[in-house]
Design a protein around this nucleic acid. Structure first.
Lengths: 111, 111
DNA sequence: CTTGATGGTAAGTCATCACTTACGGTAAGC
DNA sequence: GCTTACCGTAAGTGATGACTTACCATCAAG
């Protein structure tokens, strides 16, 4: 399950709020925490989780650390979701086809 | 956060195992539980969560219930991930461009 | 060198959740 | 009608995780 960390990281609303704040570009921890309803240490812990999942990149710059979204961080998860729902759609269409055939053979059962 | 239920549902490994078992097509609860390392009631509870998230469809058939993957169940989540990482990629490229300009102006600072 | 700002870590608490066993309700088979 | 199979629900338990306050390390400014 290579994307377990990814999903766990994305499942928390505060962490998604962090990602949304980083949508437009990089930011320091302090600036990041100002716009969030939790304490700065909580933000640090979330940044740790997001970084461990490969979703963020930390760039130390002097005293501070600038975080930005890793451009390919969610690729595996996105690929998994796409393939799963591709298969599901195929199965769905095949089931609909089977049902149609069944119904048509029922319509012909007096032949 | 319209996809909160979706992510919560997908975050659990057992629930993803259920979805993976349903990749190929629909299945009853009993058959589903046979291939899983947890009890059948646990599977029922997971099916409840997945259904509430709109990821599964239950089709009652006599005594049993046949579950299948909802073809569009993860659309909103997938769209969110795509848009978020689209923005992140754009920000990343813009940052790289800004860095290149800065470096080139530094190279010309003796002009 | 001292002071202030930045941010990661430790410890503790509270809520949530995944799981189990026990039970109830409903449809099919004899 | 009685029994059996299928499956959802209730209640209880243990583990995980998000949050807080307190603390420590590091770099910059004076």
């Amino acid at each position: 399950m290579p994307y377990q960390l990814t999903i766990d990281a994305l499942a928390d609303p505060t962490r998604r709020a962090i990602l949304d704040r980083l949508r437009g570009g990089a930011m320091t921890v302090g600036t990041l925490a100002e716009g969030l309803p939790v304490s700065r240490p909580a933000v640090s812990q979330h940044l740790r989780v997001l970084s461990d999942a490969g979703l963020l990149i930390a760039t130390p710059q002097g005293n501070r650390r600038i975080y930005s979204i890793a451009p390919n961080g969610a690729d595996e998860l996105r690929h998994y979701l796409n393939s799963l729902w591709d298969d599901a759609l195929a199965a769905f269409e095949q089931a609909a086809l089977a049902k149609a055939i069944q119904k048509s053979s029922k319509g012909n059962e007096n032949d």
